[in-house]
Computed example of a mutant assay.
Amino acid sequence: MKPDIATRKDIELIMRNFYGNLLSDAEIAYIFIDVAKIDLEKHLPHLADFWEQNILNIGSYRNNVLKIHVDLHELEPLTANHFQIWLRHFNATIDESFSGEKSELMKTRALSIATVMQLKLT
């Protein structure tokens, strides 16, 4: 049986593997590489902060996630297909290494966030 998500290191592993998968998917990688031009090493700690707060209730993440994505959407429209790809990779990445209550919570929260973002961006 796989362990459940329990630490920041678990979240960091998920985020590193998740972005590795996203950046290898031509249907969505260009948004991160060409449009957002993310520096993954600088971006990963912010992602871990966000999910650590949302899943482990630790930390004080304060960035406006919706605003970040609204700004990105203005540069490159984020479509329903982009969100589906994002969620597919997100869920698969969690399922590769983890299982349990926190794992399911993380996937559920990701679906909620993606749904709200899609509604706000239209």
Rank of each mutant, 00 (worst) to 15 (best):
S60K: 10
L23D: 03
V35T: 14
N21H: 08
P45S: 13
F32E: 00
Y61N: 05
E41P: 00
A29L: 02
Y61H: 03
V70D: 06
L56D: 07
K42V: 09
F50Y: 12
I28M: 03
L40A: 07
D71W: 02
D49R: 04
V65L: 06
L56F: 09
I68T: 13
N21D: 14
N64H: 12
L40R: 10
Q53V: 00
H69Y: 03
H43P: 04
H43D: 07
P45T: 15
I58W: 05
D25N: 09
E52Q: 15
V35H: 06
V70Q: 12
P45K: 09
I58A: 02
N21Q: 10
I31K: 07
H43C: 04
N64A: 14
N57V: 03
L40T: 11
L47N: 02
I33T: 14
A26C: 04
D34S: 14
L23Q: 04
H43L: 07
N54F: 00
I68K: 14
A29D: 11
P45L: 13
I38H: 08
L22S: 06
F50L: 05
P45Y: 15
V35K: 11
D71H: 09
I31G: 04
A29I: 08
L44K: 05
A36W: 07
K37V: 10
Y19V: 07
I31A: 04
Q53E: 15
V35S: 07
L44H: 02
L47K: 01
Y19H: 09
Y30C: 10
Q53N: 05
I28W: 04
A29F: 06
I31T: 10
E52A: 11
L56Q: 04
L66T: 11
K67H: 09
D34P: 10
H46Q: 11
L22F: 01
P45R: 11
A26K: 10
I38D: 03
E52G: 10
G59E: 01
D25E: 11
N54H: 08
H46F: 09
D49C: 08
N21F: 00
I58N: 06
K37R: 11
L23K: 04
N54L: 07
Y61A: 02
I28E: 08
L47F: 05
I31R: 01
K37G: 07
Y30W: 15
L22W: 00
L66Q: 11
H46E: 09
I28H: 02
E41I: 07
L56Y: 08
F32P: 03
E27S: 10
F32K: 05
P45F: 14
I31Y: 00
D49L: 09
N21T: 02
H43G: 00
E27C: 03
P45Q: 14
D25I: 05
N21S: 10
E41H: 12
E52K: 10
L66V: 12
N63V: 06
D39C: 13
N21W: 01
K37P: 06
A36N: 10
N64I: 10
H43S: 03
E41K: 15
F32H: 07
S24Y: 04
L23I: 04
L23M: 13
